[in-house]
Amino acid sequence: MERLPSWIRQHLAAVRAVIVLTLVTGAIYPLLVTGVAQAVFNHKANGSMTDKGSELIGQKFTDADGNPVKKYFQSRPSAAGDGYDMLSTAASNLGPEDVLDVLPDPNGADDAAKEGKQSLLTQVCARSKAIGELEGVSGARPFCAPDGVGAVLKVFPAIGTPTRAVSVNQACPAQPFVAEFQGVKVECGKPGEDYAAGRTVPVRGNVTDVKVPADAVTASGSGLDPHISVAYAQLQAARVAKERGKPVEAVRKLIADNTTGRALGFMGEPGVNVLMLNLALDKE
């Protein structure tokens, strides 16, 4: 070995270094951590399991058709697979100005065109509307049309005085959320028509009192968010109490019991663990 030229020896050293360091940091270290973790924090190291899943991992509480099971508190929307799928975790990754839908076009050239695509804004509006209906409150939000799509106009021409305005997220024959825009009659959106040339004008509307909390209409980052906000839990309390025939106060107490506060008073945000809350409800 010593007779090899030094530049080859160096590369041999590199090979050996990769092997040795792999053994140290890729075998000894993780196995040691696993050993100690399993011995000392056995419950947590194995996923904080209850008999109905991990308390750290959110679940969807829906029936086979995907409709909310009304006796359970509902989790947030999820972009993980079909919702809360641990094997395909994901966030929506839709941007803050994602406001234009692609309307489903039965005559579309491909599947994508046939299915259309909902913008984040429309998703938010649709969720808000659905939750409002479920909980018996108004689902109205700013920038949302009453029919649960984003209130967005395309105005033509892009620059100058408008001559034409289209409510692009509202497929005909829907009634546009406003009748007129700067003196121009607003049309409904025709699937398949290209509105790219217009100027995008989201319309805020005059909604000020929003009943459905923000977390209820947004997908989490993990797609597995086990928590909902206290506000969203309170919103659901009445419905759950009614379904279960329990006094609302009892449900509210369980909410409080299953609320995780901020760690040390300042880390993170308070949240209600939905699975644990539902389990607690079932237990009573």
């Binding site: 947030r76 966030a91 929506s92 990754n93 839709l94 941007g95 803050p96 100005e97 994602d98 406001v99 984040l120 804004l121 938010v124 509006c125 939000r141 700013p142 920038f143 949302c144 984003g150 989201p202 805020r204 929003v210 909390p213 923000a214 977390d215 209409v217 947004t218 997908a219 989490s220 980052g221 993990s222 968010d225 086990p226 928590h227 909902i228 906000s229 995780t260 880390m267 993170g268 945000e269 949240g271």
Partner: peptide, 24 residues
């Protein structure tokens, strides 16, 4: 400050409840 966060009421899309907007 953007259309969708305004509609939502907070920039909460893609954020988990236990972290919240600020810590995220």
């Amino acid at each position: 400050d953007a259309t969708v966060p305004q509609a939502i009421g907070a920039a909460l899309e893609g954020k988990d409840v236990r972290f919240g907007v600020a810590n995220s």
